[in-house]
Design a protein around this nucleic acid. Structure first.
Lengths: 123, 123
DNA sequence: GAATTCGCGCAACTACTAGTTTCGCAAGGA
DNA sequence: TCCTTGCGAAACTAGTAGTTGCGCGAATTC
């Protein structure tokens, strides 16, 4: 559940910062960072927030990891940040999805084509 | 930046739970919750995670609030939880968008209709 | 309208632990 | 070989998270 120690180490390495470096940005000692990464201790919320600022990641990424599986199918649902909830994804209609919505248009085309066909062949 | 105290109170009230109730779920005293909500103290990461479980919200929502404004336009971009990043929204296809993708299908229908029209009128 | 319950805040205290200090170790570089 | 870089571990301490205890206003209940 809580992947913070591994996440911190991973993200820190990805951004090529040392424990010393990070420590000075957070105004704590290097050993404090070491403890966080080994799971010997856990930073308080303030330092967690500072970490999200420094690394520019979300709290959820920092604590749960990017793979924090959502219960919804991300290919079908997307997160709407404005309303803070998942909504059905629009677009990516296939042919039948389209027909369900635009049958009237297709029908209209058929009628028009049919009408002109009769008209022309009747000449 | 940190809206946790207000968020906790807000979310707790939305879900119609009392401080007592919440406290028993977290195995802490009611007064501990009171302190969290008044900002007198801050829960440790473990209790924060438990809160996200109980309320079924993200850590970011709990700490920053749902209004944690994204820099992107949510009407144009949506969050892809699978890749943990914002992607351009696939918009509601309109008729012409569809035609651009499925002109071949429409053309096929037109041919079929045309063919049968000629066939029948030729009887 | 007194008594009780519910939901919550505040002050004092304590135990825990996050963070510090100190020591040390392995890997490069000069 | 010495120095620097990057990190881990043990012992210690100060800060604070959480507990205990008191109380208060507002609904219910009798």
């Amino acid at each position: 559940m809580n992947k913070f120690p591994a996440q911190l180490k991973k993200i820190r390495n990805e951004q090529n910062t040392t424990q010393d470096d990070l420590a000075s940005q957070l105004f704590v000692t290097r050993q404090a960072i070491s403890k966080w990464e080994s799971g010997d201790s856990t930073p308080d919320l303030n330092n967690l927030i500072k970490l999200t600022d420094i690394f520019n990641v979300s709290l959820d990424t920092l604590v749960f990891g990017a793979e924090h599986e959502t219960k919804v199918d991300p290919t079908e649902f997307v997160f709407d940040p404005k309303h803070n909830r998942y909504v059905r994804r629009l677009g990516k209609m296939n042919f039948w999805d389209f027909l369900a919505g635009y049958w009237w248009a297709v029908l209209a085309i058929v009628f028009v084509i049919g009408f002109f066909s009769l008209f022309w062949s009747g000449q």
